[in-house]
Structure formats: C-alpha cells, structure tokens
Amino acid sequence: MQRVNMIMAESPGLITICLLGYLLSAECTVFLDHENANKILNRPKRYNSGKLEEFVQGNLERECMEEKCSFEEAREVFENTERTTEFWKQYVDGDQCESNPCLNGGSCKDDINSYECWCPFGFEGKNCELDVTCNIKNGRCEQFCKNSADNKVVCSCTEGYRLAENQKSCEPAVPFPCGRVSVSQTSKLTRAETVFPDVDYVNSTEAETILDNITQSTQSFNDFTRVVGGEDAKPGQFPWQVVLNGKVDAFCGGSIVNEKWIVTAAHCVETGVKITVVAGEHNIEETEHTEQKRNVIRIIPHHNYNAAINKYNHDIALLELDEPLVLNSYVTPICIADKEYTNIFLKFGSGYVSGWGRVFHKGRSALVLQYLRVPLVDRATCLRSTKFTIYNNMFCAGFHEGGRDSCQGDSGGPHVTEVEGTSFLTGIISWGEECAMKGKYGIYTKVSRYVNWIKEKTKLT
C-alpha cells in the first residue's frame, strides 16, 4: 500500500490518463441519441435557420407576430419608411378606419389613436360632414345658397324668414311668412316636400332668348283662358290664391305678392273693366268669414305684352289694390325667389296649380277651390304637342294621358313649387288646347323671366 501511494504521488498524470480511459469505455446513459432527441424537440425550422439574422431580410411573422416588435424591426421587413409607417399605425392600436367614419364618399386613412378623412370636392370637416359648395344638395341650405369668396357655403332665406341657429334652416321672422300653410287642420295635408338634388348652379339658368321682337298675326285659340281631375282644397291650404270678379264672377285667378299687390295673367284683364279681388276665398257660393274683398285701382301688364300681336306672350300683369290686405292664416303671400332659384325650383319637376275653373272641358265651374299636382314636361315634348308657338318664356306641365289639367277660369292662378315646406311661385296658368285632352298640356308663363320686374313694381313704400 505504501508503494502504491508513492507511485500516485510521483505520477499524477498517469492516474488522470487511467481515469479518462475508464470513462470513455463506459456506456453513456444520461444523453439520448440524435434521433430520439429530435422526437422530443420537434420544432419547425425557421426561415433563416442556421444563418445569422443580421444578414437576412426581415420576416413579418418572425419579427412582429411571434413577439412584439419595434418600429426598427418592422422597418427591416418593409425596407421602406412609408410602408412601415402605414403598417405601424394599425399594428400599434388597430384600424381606426374600420367603422368607416368618413361621410359623403370620403376616404379614410388610419393613424395612431386617430384617423384622417380625405374629402371629395365640396366637403370638409373631420368626417367630411361639412358642405362647402352650393353645387351639392344646395349646400344643405333649406332655401338659398351662395358661395363666399373663400368658396364656403353661405345660406340665406327669402323675405319674412331668418336663418336658424344651425345656419342652414329657415324659420319665420314674421307672423305670416310667405308660402307657408298655417291653418292647423290643413298642415297635415301639406304636399310632399321637395329635397334639393345635386345641381350645376353655374349652368342652372337656361341660355334662352326671349323672342321679344317676333311679330306674329293673332292666333285663334280655343278655350285658351284655361282644375280638371283635381281635388277639393281645404280652407287655408292655398292662402296665396285669390279669385278675380268682373263682368262675371271667378273669371280668373291670381296670387298675393304682398298686402297691396296681386300677380295674374295679362290676358285676364281689360282696361276700363272694374275688377274686384277676393282673398281668403274657399267656396265661392258661401260666406265663410275668411274672405277679404278689395278693388283694383291700377293694372300693370308687362311692358312687352301686346294682345294685338299675341294674347299669351309675356302673359303676366300686376294688380294694385285700393287697401292693403290683412295677412292671416287664410290670406298669405306666395314666396318669389330670384331668377336663378325660381328656375331651379321649376326644374324640380312638379308643381301645384289651383283655381275655381271648370271641372271638365266646357263644363261647370268649381264651387270649392280645386288643386292638382302636375309634372313638368320637357321642352321637346311640349313643342311636338301643339302647332302653336311655345315661346321661351312659357313652359308645359300636365299629363300625356289627359284627364287632369287646369281649365277655363283658372287662368292667372299660381303654379307653385314647394321647397322644404315653403311654396314659391314658378308659373302662372296661361293657356292650353281644350282641357285635359290626351297628348295636350297646360301652358304656363315662366315666372323666372319676370321676377325682377315683379319685385321692382310691387315694392311697398
């Protein structure tokens, strides 16, 4: 034993070699072989497995989906700052455009905790909710729209109204504003409101030439003092309507412009014939205590009207009353817009006519005020429907199939267009061939041609 100890002390290297040989010859039971080890760690190889990531292109799944990435790591994937920024906006807080917040056709661009709407022409605001041009839906104005110097929408209202708090709607500024039905039992019968379409306001006024200088022999019209197929109006439903009495009662109609003036057809009036105007009328054979009678003290036909040349060209006249009318729910003026808007309103496509005229061709006159909704007829169809001249200051309205029309005794009465609950004068009943005849239409004086003249002559002093 002493000898062994001496050998170990003198030859430590020998001992180490012996131990190493023993270990190498022993069977290893701690580690699995290569094949079995792979069965336990069965993990798919990654895209760049075996390579240094710093030297390969980034992978979106590896960089940002398996674990949260930084902007720089995302930049490695896209290799483009702009594309990385677009991805980053949604990656950080989701897609803010998912709810489609942009209105009126706006395009949404996502941002971090926010979004941006790219608005089409005519709109602005956070969600493109603000109209900035009158060309689109009248700028959301209830009545009139004008573009300011910086191309912003400025709404306005006709006389007797003021802008509401929203700067879009119009509200009454006087007790009985024009064009409004205020009798409670008839307010439910107000005709369907007309909503502004998209309009090209630059070209809204037709490029028409008034044929002022045409000389033409007097034409022989049949029954051209021209509501057939209409309905009984309720008291106060058309408070701007008046009836004219002269040699015979209810020979023509008219509309209240203001307390002192009536507008009617020029062919209705004769110099030297006494005319009485009755406002607030409903049943011409009954006294309903809503009527107001006034005498006409002055007749002003349009300066281009000449019955000797043509009885229905420039067929418009103004009547001055001896005493002002007292405005109330049964006696209310009709609204008159400017030339541009009167023309736009007419193009809405349908209007209402009213009167006490004959209820059928050569038949009896109506006792109760009649009204009828009539569609506008395109000019080409209008011209083809008659052998008589249709001037540019006239328009056609009615039904091709016949059966409904204005008729004798309705002449001078109103053709009105309702705009968001307020009625505007767009025409004056003038003439036609018979009444409600198939293929024939009622012919009306186009008020847009005469609004400046009306307003100039009827100013209240």
Rank of each mutant, 00 (worst) to 15 (best):
A149R: 09
V77Y: 06
N113P: 03
N104K: 02
N127H: 13
Q241V: 09
C97A: 01
P101M: 02
D131E: 15
V278A: 05
S430L: 13
G50T: 15
E418R: 11
K293D: 03
M65L: 05
D232K: 10
K89E: 08
Q185W: 12
C97F: 00
E61K: 15
A307Y: 10
N203I: 10
K234S: 12
C170H: 00
G246Q: 05
P120F: 03
K440A: 09
E27C: 05
Q219Y: 07
R364T: 14
S329W: 06
K455E: 05
K339G: 08
R373D: 03
D93T: 08
V154C: 05
T386I: 12
T417N: 10
F388W: 11
F224N: 13
V4C: 12
C335D: 01
C102S: 01
T84R: 07
Q216H: 11
L19P: 03
N310L: 04
S70E: 12
P44T: 15
A250S: 11
F221T: 08
L32N: 15
I390E: 05
G355M: 05
T218N: 13
F144S: 00
E27Q: 14
C108P: 02
K260W: 06
S329F: 05
V243K: 09
M8Y: 13
K39G: 13
L319C: 08
V278W: 05
K293Y: 13
K247Y: 05
Q90F: 08
N48W: 08
P324F: 03
G427M: 01
G105C: 02
R180E: 02
F78D: 10
I15Q: 04
V228M: 06
K260R: 08
L103E: 12
A164M: 10
G280L: 02
I210T: 13
E418D: 15
E193W: 09
R358V: 06
E433G: 11
D212S: 09
G442E: 04
D150K: 09
Y330V: 06
I256P: 00
T445I: 06
S448Q: 05
I443F: 06
T194I: 11
Y22V: 06
G253A: 11
E35W: 06
V447C: 03
N100K: 06
K68E: 04
S70A: 15
R75Q: 09
V154I: 11
N59E: 04
Q219N: 08
V154R: 09
L52P: 15
E82P: 13
T209E: 12
L369V: 08
E61F: 13
V377Y: 02
A265P: 03
D93G: 06
V374Y: 02
T426K: 00
C134R: 02
V263P: 00
G403T: 13
F238R: 04
C69Y: 02
S187M: 11
Q90K: 14
L318W: 00
Y444G: 02
I17K: 02
I390A: 08
E270A: 12
V195Y: 13
L163Y: 01
F360M: 15
F71N: 15
F345W: 06
A279G: 03
Y444M: 04
A207G: 13
A250D: 06
E231H: 13
V368A: 12
D322A: 07
P175A: 11
S430P: 03
I299A: 07
C157V: 01
T29G: 08
